Amino acid sequence: MQQPLAPWLEPTLNKLLAQAHEGQLAHALLLPLSKEQGAEVLLNRLLQGLLCLNGNACGQCKSCHLLAAGTHPDAYSIKADGNQIKVDQIRELTSALSKTAQQGGARVAIIWQAEQLNHAAANALLKTLEEPAANCFIVLASAKAGLLPATIRSRCQNVALTQVSKAQSRDWLQNQGVDWNTVGWTYDVLGGPYAMLQQQGQERLEQLQSARKEWSNALAKGQVSATLCQYTQDQPADSLHVLHWLISKKMGSILASQRAFANRLSALISEISQVRQQLAHMPSVNYVALCTRLVLDYQQAAKQ
């Protein structure tokens, strides 16, 4: 089922499709890949609009039917082979793009996590960007565009996504049937409205609710449960995001009345952020000790 297009994505999509209709759209686009804010939805709608034989994602033409079935011969998707995008993948793509479109319209290639292009692949792609074929579009989707070579970035049209406020997200999500009063707190944990929409009724949301309860009890009593330690081991990023949210909420509630305590909580929040980053590079972790340490640090901050 196709995900709904949020109103803050519509201006960007309409602008890009208008440029394409007028022959003004660049052959290479660089799109910030923020899944939580709906970048993938925008990209899929752009793909539909560019490939549609009627130019408006009509859903009725042969091209639209092929795309919906995942069998469109002029739509190409490149993803990392392992932890990098390799030169053979780009050479194969370049060869395909040099041929005539089978449906008589545009040809569109999406390179996902484009920052994973290795050096040889980036050089091969650069040649294609320098000599683009007619009616051919290459979209580089990346959450870390700064890691791309400057020579690649300079040949792309940057697509800026409109920043959405929490209030806008709340109103839209409620219109989509999300019970904001119950799950609105997960907005900061999950990172955005589309992440919340995708988690509706799913196990991950229930786990986040449970983690909130477990961390709240641990901070209040100074003891961690086996359930909390196991969850942190299984889902360290989510667990620490929940803890980060809880302590941030506490800090906000006492900022005016207990500034010294709030400052100590601010330091603890920074510590949690550092732990989140370090876990990805640590070969082994004692999660019982980690959870206990963070809870004791909170207790110590509250006593000073």
Rank of each mutant, 00 (worst) to 15 (best):
Q113R: 09
D234W: 01
K15W: 10
Q200N: 06
G82H: 06
A195L: 02
L117K: 01
R264E: 05
G192E: 05
K86P: 07
A301I: 01
L42F: 03
N263F: 12
I254S: 04
P132A: 10
K303T: 13
H72C: 04
W215N: 05
E92M: 04
G252P: 07
R91M: 00
S216C: 10
P4I: 00
A134Q: 15
Q48C: 09
I272Y: 10
E131T: 05
M1D: 12
L190C: 07
Q157D: 10
P149L: 02
L290Q: 04
Q278T: 12
L268V: 04
L47I: 14
M1H: 13
M196D: 01
Q176M: 11
M1T: 13
K303Q: 12
S270M: 09
N158K: 14
A280E: 14
A6L: 11
V288G: 13
L140K: 07
M251P: 12
L9D: 03
Q113E: 15
G104E: 05
D81P: 10
L279G: 03
Q60M: 10
L46V: 09
A195W: 09
G38R: 05
G55R: 08
T12P: 08
G192W: 00
R170G: 05
R91S: 00
H244S: 14
K127A: 05
K79H: 14
V295K: 01
N56H: 13
M1I: 12
I272M: 07
S95A: 12
E22M: 11
T128S: 09
N14K: 11
